[in-house]
Deep mutational scan, measured.
Amino acid sequence: MLDDRARMEAAKKEKVEQILAEFQLQEEDLKKVMRRMQKEMDRGLRLETHEEASVKMLPTYVRSTPEGSEVGDFLSLDLGGTNFRVMLVKVGEGEEGQWSVKTKHQMYSIPEDAMTGTAEMLFDYISECISDFLDKHQMKHKKLPLGFTFSFPVRHEDIDKGILLNWTKGFKASGAEGNNVVGLLRDAIKRRGDFEMDVVAMVNDTVATMISCYYEDHQCEVGMIVGTGCNACYMEEMQNVELVEGDEGRMCVNTEWGAFGDSGELDEFLLEYDRLVDESSANPGQQLYEKLIGGKYMGELVRLVLLRLVDENLLFHGEASEQLRTRGAFETRFVSQVESDTGDRKQIYNILSTLGLRPSTTDCDIVRRACESVSTRAAHMCSAGLAGVINRMRESRSEDVMRITVGVDGSVYKLHPSFKERFHASVRRLTPSCEITFIESEEGSGRGAALVSAVACKKACMLGQ
């Protein structure tokens, strides 16, 4: 009897593995994704193909990295998701002549009506938060230079001027797309009239992360975010950046690689679950690469896999709870928690219980395998993109072996128990001629924006502006 049951459990697990095998990517698959990513990057950089390229390769006008001589107080704003952060950054000489960066910050959550109302409502709310922060720190009387981390696709015309191309991540505030974001912020500050600010720089969160990590390690020339969304930036040779005049030196390019796949480059790798996630998203047909990796989508992918296993009578005796059938019910943090389970399955059992399920031991094991399959594919897909960037940098610099540091931020990278190990191992397999160091950014977005502002202020002083 026991043997029969054991055989049935083994057969069930084997069927589960057959279904989950769809998520496995072979090294040849990853090399294919990497080569296609490089081709799209090239198209994004070139003037004649930029418009139709899915990977936009947006110039950021960040050319210099901090040298350690900029000092002063800077205000930093960070808008990239449902939370908005205001930070005071003091850049100065530390002990023994070292450079020191001290920060104080406060988080504000953005109400739904500000995210989806008008641009005026959104930026009025942001300036209200700045006003509140300055009151708390008794700094209303000071006109501070301000660095703005704005983590949406922007076409820069200068370091302090950028046109919002399109909202992502659930934002829909009308009247912002096609307009200068810094102008919208300046107008809102003017409307309030109770404080003055000098907006000197606007950067993407990947750029802010790279600059913040450069402060720790001067070989950091790539910034990457794996959180709600997924994106990367890197220092490109100016001669390859056709959208900006000049051939000397390097400029940081914001790849906006989340949109890779929007022209069909990933079609052969998309599964039924991916198509369902895409169809029910706020932007169907867009940001397809990001939807395979980002935390906004990972939990939902797992939920759809679990429903398939229920329908195949391989999980929960073929019956799903009402909660499990509800879109968004299986949160991405559950994926991390399930994979963090120590082996007694308590954590998995508790999560499934909150979803109205009474799982068996085998159910718990199957749910864990589903989570591992989805998150491992995410790590491997992400590795193909980064390997594409790094191999490109090595080739354009004609280096036999390139040493490089990548600064990384984002909740999936930082909080998932195995993502970074799987990701690092896969990147290294795909970049055999590179020695890569990964560092995690601390308060990256805010500190990085302030350091970019410090560079901009120093330049302005040198130019006598």
Score class of each variant (00 low, 15 high):
366 I>A: 11
228 T>S: 12
18 Q>S: 15
95 E>F: 11
6 A>Y: 12
414 K>R: 10
108 Y>N: 10
44 G>A: 00
301 L>P: 00
31 K>M: 15
372 E>I: 10
316 F>G: 08
105 H>M: 01
144 L>T: 04
135 D>Q: 15
373 S>W: 06
69 S>P: 13
163 I>P: 13
56 K>D: 01
296 K>Y: 12
58 L>V: 13
396 S>M: 08
260 F>S: 00
84 F>W: 03
301 L>R: 05
265 E>T: 09
136 K>H: 04
348 I>K: 01
18 Q>K: 14
142 K>N: 04
160 D>L: 03
451 L>P: 06
81 G>E: 09
229 G>V: 05
118 T>V: 07
257 W>R: 00
119 A>T: 07
43 R>D: 05
237 E>S: 08
88 L>C: 10
10 A>H: 09
182 V>H: 14
189 I>W: 13
359 P>E: 03
129 C>E: 12
340 S>Y: 09
307 L>T: 12
286 Q>V: 15
286 Q>L: 13
158 D>Y: 09
453 S>M: 08
401 V>F: 10
137 H>R: 07
392 R>E: 01
322 E>T: 10
326 T>L: 11
111 P>S: 11
144 L>M: 12
76 S>C: 05
431 T>G: 01
407 G>Q: 02
444 G>F: 06
276 L>M: 12
378 A>N: 06
364 C>M: 10
247 D>L: 08
217 D>M: 01
377 R>N: 00
282 A>Q: 00
78 D>A: 14
333 R>G: 09
89 V>A: 09
271 L>M: 06
380 H>Y: 10
451 L>A: 11
38 Q>W: 13
20 L>A: 00
298 M>E: 01
73 D>P: 01
94 G>W: 11
152 F>Y: 11
85 R>I: 11
113 D>I: 12
295 G>S: 14
254 N>E: 05
337 Q>A: 14
251 M>F: 00
45 L>T: 03
421 E>M: 11
79 L>S: 05
72 G>D: 12
205 D>T: 05
267 D>P: 01
83 N>V: 10
76 S>A: 09
200 V>R: 07
19 I>H: 06
4 D>R: 06
255 T>C: 15
143 K>S: 06
148 F>H: 07
166 N>Q: 09
272 E>S: 12
85 R>P: 04
107 M>S: 13
367 V>M: 03
123 F>D: 06
452 V>R: 04
76 S>K: 06
90 K>P: 03
136 K>Y: 06
32 K>W: 09
40 E>R: 00
283 N>G: 05
218 H>C: 10
411 S>W: 12
342 T>D: 12
241 V>W: 01
464 G>C: 07
365 D>V: 09
419 F>Q: 01
28 E>I: 08
244 V>Y: 07
463 L>C: 12
341 D>I: 03
178 G>Q: 11
273 Y>F: 10
76 S>R: 05
313 N>G: 10
226 V>Q: 05
242 E>G: 04
210 M>K: 06
404 I>R: 00
157 E>N: 15
307 L>G: 08
100 S>Q: 14
5 R>F: 06
430 L>S: 02
76 S>D: 05
392 R>C: 04
388 G>W: 03
117 G>W: 08
111 P>V: 01
297 Y>L: 07
187 D>A: 10
441 S>E: 04
9 E>R: 09
402 M>Y: 07
257 W>I: 14
413 Y>R: 02
167 W>Y: 15
168 T>G: 14
332 T>C: 08
102 K>L: 06
191 R>H: 04
292 L>D: 00
240 N>T: 06
37 M>S: 00
16 V>N: 02
252 C>T: 02
9 E>P: 11
276 L>R: 13
30 L>N: 02
201 A>H: 03
56 K>M: 06
360 S>Y: 06
107 M>L: 10
389 V>C: 07
14 E>A: 05
141 H>S: 09
375 S>E: 13
102 K>A: 07
150 F>Q: 09
428 R>W: 08
383 S>K: 04
351 I>K: 03
412 V>G: 05
218 H>G: 03
371 C>R: 00
4 D>N: 10
111 P>I: 02
215 Y>N: 04
242 E>F: 02
308 R>P: 00
208 A>K: 02
149 T>K: 07
305 V>S: 04
6 A>S: 13
395 E>L: 10
112 E>I: 08
330 F>T: 00
336 S>C: 15
21 A>Y: 15
148 F>E: 01
374 V>A: 09
112 E>Y: 09
294 G>H: 11
177 E>I: 11
195 F>V: 08
343 G>K: 12
439 I>C: 06
79 L>V: 11
248 E>N: 14
359 P>W: 05
281 S>T: 09
49 T>H: 10
288 L>E: 05
264 G>L: 03
460 A>W: 09
175 G>R: 11
151 S>T: 07
433 S>P: 10
359 P>I: 15
90 K>E: 07
395 E>H: 08
222 V>I: 06
445 S>N: 15
255 T>S: 11
440 E>C: 11
53 A>V: 04
149 T>W: 14
48 E>I: 14
273 Y>E: 15
129 C>K: 11
130 I>A: 05
8 M>E: 15
132 D>M: 15
382 C>Q: 02
312 E>Y: 07
118 T>M: 14
435 E>A: 09
418 S>C: 13
58 L>T: 04
213 C>M: 11
182 V>D: 15
406 V>I: 14
338 V>K: 00
400 D>I: 10
223 G>R: 01
71 V>N: 15
255 T>V: 15
464 G>S: 12
77 L>I: 09
449 A>V: 09
255 T>L: 12
105 H>V: 07
366 I>S: 06
387 A>I: 00
211 I>S: 03
127 S>T: 07
377 R>F: 00
459 K>V: 10
143 K>Y: 04
354 T>R: 05
183 G>D: 13
188 A>E: 02
237 E>K: 04
91 V>S: 13
312 E>M: 05
250 R>N: 09
429 R>W: 06
266 L>R: 00
159 I>T: 15
69 S>L: 12
428 R>A: 09
450 A>Q: 09
204 N>M: 05
181 V>E: 06
134 L>T: 03
457 C>A: 13
456 A>P: 04
75 L>H: 03
88 L>N: 14
194 D>F: 14
265 E>W: 04
219 Q>A: 06
109 S>D: 15
335 V>M: 11
188 A>W: 03
39 K>A: 11
263 S>Y: 04
238 M>F: 07
277 V>E: 03
159 I>V: 15
141 H>D: 14
103 T>W: 05
136 K>A: 06
301 L>S: 06
215 Y>A: 05
293 I>E: 00
318 G>E: 11
33 V>W: 03
115 M>I: 07
228 T>Q: 15
238 M>P: 01
219 Q>T: 10
38 Q>V: 08
355 L>R: 05
137 H>G: 04
267 D>R: 03
233 C>S: 07
139 M>I: 15
409 D>T: 13
300 E>G: 02
322 E>D: 10
440 E>A: 09
264 G>N: 05
351 I>W: 02
23 F>W: 06
281 S>V: 04
103 T>R: 02
421 E>K: 09
71 V>C: 14
452 V>F: 13
76 S>Q: 07
402 M>H: 13
299 G>C: 04
142 K>G: 07
401 V>D: 10
441 S>A: 13
449 A>F: 12
316 F>R: 00
54 S>H: 12
304 L>I: 06
166 N>L: 09
305 V>N: 01
56 K>H: 03
340 S>R: 11
124 D>I: 00
231 N>A: 12
84 F>S: 05
176 A>F: 06
265 E>M: 02
203 V>I: 11
133 F>G: 00
287 Q>C: 08
203 V>N: 08
132 D>E: 06
4 D>W: 03
403 R>M: 11
412 V>Y: 06
245 E>D: 15
366 I>H: 04
11 A>V: 15
98 Q>F: 05
263 S>L: 05
33 V>K: 00
112 E>T: 09
85 R>E: 12
132 D>S: 05
123 F>R: 01
416 H>S: 08
125 Y>M: 04
173 A>F: 12
24 Q>V: 14
106 Q>P: 01
125 Y>C: 06
101 V>E: 14
294 G>R: 02
166 N>T: 12
34 M>C: 05
309 L>C: 05
309 L>W: 00
364 C>R: 01
419 F>R: 04
203 V>G: 08
309 L>M: 13
237 E>T: 03
406 V>M: 01
370 A>H: 01
76 S>W: 05
350 N>E: 01
393 M>A: 04
136 K>T: 06
32 K>E: 10
207 V>S: 04
113 D>F: 13
221 E>C: 05
405 T>W: 08
270 L>W: 08
196 E>W: 04
